[in-house]
Design a binder for these strands. Sequence first.
DNA 1: GCTTGATATTTTAAGCTTGAAACTTTTTCC
DNA 2: GGAAAAAGTTTCAAGCTTAAAATATCAAGC
Lengths: 165, 165
Amino acid sequence: MTGAPAIREKHDGALADRTSIRLWLRLLSCTTVMEKRIRRRFADRYDATLPRFDVLAALDRAPDGMTMGALSRALLVSSGNVTGVVQALLRDGYVLMTTSPTDGRASIVRLTPEGQDHFAELSEAHHEWIDAMLAGMSRHDREALYELLGALKLSLAADTGEEKP
Amino acid sequence: MTGAPAIREKHDGALADRTSIRLWLRLLSCTTVMEKRIRRRFADRYDATLPRFDVLAALDRAPDGMTMGALSRALLVSSGNVTGVVQALLRDGYVLMTTSPTDGRASIVRLTPEGQDHFAELSEAHHEWIDAMLAGMSRHDREALYELLGALKLSLAADTGEEKP
DNA sequence: GCTTGATATTTTAAGCTTGAAACTTTTTCC
DNA sequence: GGAAAAAGTTTCAAGCTTAAAATATCAAGC
């Protein structure tokens, strides 16, 4: 599979162009700006954090609750991490935690009604912020960007990090 | 400037489409995957971290050194944060810190020769990793993605976070 | 039934990140 | 020259993140 082989210099293995690095830096910059902005607004206006929002969002999609392990896999974070975030949500009364009736090792986490309300509020604000941040792009450009990010996703999936054979 | 005004529902101000949210989630996903991969490889193969690499990169561009404040502004992180990262680099012998001769409040941080060598090694690996991760995209697509991210950058700059007037 | 290994979770140590408070030095303004 | 304000930096508390070690439970095989 050789869609577009990287063009290399004759010397020392450095790529001839800086396209990739510039692209990565711009991608990182855009994401960082958006993420910091969302984080800041959550903190300032709702006394909330992005990781807690992520957990609430995952639980909102699972009315019957999720195990800690399922949460960890869904959010792509370590299980130890989930433990801390869920404990904070427990203190705030936004989630309930029960031991699974079928597996004594597993805990099942569930939104409380307060958690549902809280998430609904956060979610609406979050949606509006994203819309506003992207409002300066035409729908055509947004869709084109979405598609190209799909191509990037594929490229990332193809890169295994192995040394060249 | 009205490239393509957002299409809104008649009711409750919610946008009619989910283009923006889907785009944001995909953007975040791609960046997170790349960032975690780089972070992991730095840790596994070089006993380094991404924040330290960022500081080294900024200092590498400033042969005469930078103040802590300049570093903080260049990297878009808090000054307290820079303090911690620079202290770690000091312990490793990669940077030197001196009080500014013209301003007793300011510290000037500079790479040591070891720091320069270390950064050169990290930088080359970093470059190769990025190239490999993006190698699955055609040059045309990479450039198109770069341009669209430029449009996103502009859109972000236009969003002030103010309430609608 | 009991041992062995696998699985689910928590704990711990180390590091990054921020915002606010504290400290030092410089600048400004009488 | 001296007081007050401003600026550069560090310290501190709180929270997120990970990997690795420790706990507890389940499952398989004998």
